[in-house]
């Protein structure tokens, strides 16, 4: 899952860049980047519980914004650490639709070394662009 944290953009918070050959891959990378802020070693998150998510937005970038917001919502409301199990994004006349299955488990500080609590996804320098290789997104999470 290609993503990297950008050091010099967000002094008080965390910025990341995620890439993907397809929009779906990019969304999955971005989800892992966000989860990895909250816990170290996201690969240790066991896929015990499943959550289905459906989203629509006129714009692809705001769809990603909403999607990352879902992860933060589930972290607080259900204490769930989630990663992408399956995801499909389609473009229609009224914008973009996303159908995703997220999977993961309840946060357990004994097994998941904690990182920083993510308060919100911000729109500061938030971008989603097409590249020669596929897609690239930059996001800053408020810590």
């Amino acid at each position: 899952m290609p993503y990297r944290y950008l050091d010099d953009i967000a002094t008080a918070d965390v910025a990341f860049e995620a890439t993907g050959a397809t929009l779906e891959e990019l969304f999955a990378s971005a989800a892992e980047a966000a989860t990895n802020v909250m816990v170290e070693e996201p690969e240790r998150v066991e896929r015990k519980k499943k959550v289905d998510v459906s989203l629509k937005n006129e714009d692809a970038d705001m769809l990603l914004f909403d999607f990352l917001g879902e992860l933060i919502y589930y972290k607080d409301a259900k204490k769930l650490l989630l990663l992408v199990e399956g995801i499909r994004i389609t473009e229609g006349a009224d914008g973009y639709s996303l159908e995703a299955t997220l999977s993961g488990e309840e946060l357990d500080p004994k097994r998941h070394p904690l990182g920083a609590d993510v308060k919100a996804v911000t729109l500061h320098r938030f971008s989603l662009t097409r590249t020669n290789e596929g897609w690239r997104a930059t996001a800053i999470l408020d810590i």
């Binding site: 050091d7 002094t11 008080a12 918070d13 965390v14 920083a116 810590i143």
Partner: peptide
């Protein structure tokens, strides 16, 4: 106010 990023 911070002057150094969290990562740094």
């Amino acid at each position: 106010g911070r002057t150094m990023s969290r990562h740094q």
